[in-house]
Simulated assay, not measured.
Amino acid sequence: MRDVRDALMVARNTEGKLVRRPLSPHLQVYRWPLSMAISILHRVTGVAISVGTLLMTWWLVAAAVSDNAFASAQWFMGSAVGLLLLFGWTLALFFHFFAGIRHLVWDAGFGFDPPDYNISGWAVVIATGVATVLVWIIGLVVW
């Protein structure tokens, strides 16, 4: 016996041929537009910045409390896990910054045409990568 849902999964493509389709968009079928992915990541990086700020606050408070507290905080920040967290925080900070500039441009009424918002989306991604790598190269050379 056929399931009722099977009837809902039948549709016609542009040539008129019968095809099976999913009941709802799925990750295997639906492709995220760049602007949607950037919008979601903008929110996620806002949360990541908050968590990273707690880590930086711990480092600053440890510096104010005692030499031993600062030494342990500094040791953690210099460890592989600490550097990875700092790199992620830097990446989130720059992404959120550049995506925020993109939103400010939109608020001014510019960049709503599909070619414009695709270009600005890729500009956010590229600027984030370049700025993060540049800051880390300078930071590691100075360190």
Rank of each mutant, 00 (worst) to 15 (best):
L55R: 12
R21A: 07
H96A: 08
W32T: 15
H26W: 01
S79D: 08
L84M: 08
A108T: 14
H96M: 05
W136I: 14
P115C: 04
D107A: 10
G121T: 09
K17C: 11
L84N: 13
F94S: 15
V124D: 02
G52K: 06
H42T: 06
G129L: 05
L41Y: 13
F95Y: 15
S120Y: 06
F112M: 05
A99Y: 02
V135I: 08
A80G: 15
N118E: 07
L83E: 09
L85P: 05
G78F: 12
V29T: 09
A63Q: 07
A123R: 12
F94Q: 02
T53H: 03
L93C: 09
A62F: 08
I137R: 12
D116N: 00
F95E: 02
A108L: 09
A73E: 02
P25R: 00
F97P: 01
F70W: 15
I119E: 05
G88K: 04
L18P: 06
V130E: 01
G16L: 05
P114D: 03
T128K: 05
Q74V: 07
N68I: 12
G121I: 01
W122L: 10
I49D: 03
A123I: 11
F110C: 08
I49F: 06
L41I: 14
F112Y: 09
S79V: 10
L54T: 14
V51P: 03
V19E: 10
I137L: 11
W106R: 14
L83A: 13
A71C: 03
G46E: 03
L41E: 12
K17G: 14
L41V: 10
L86R: 13
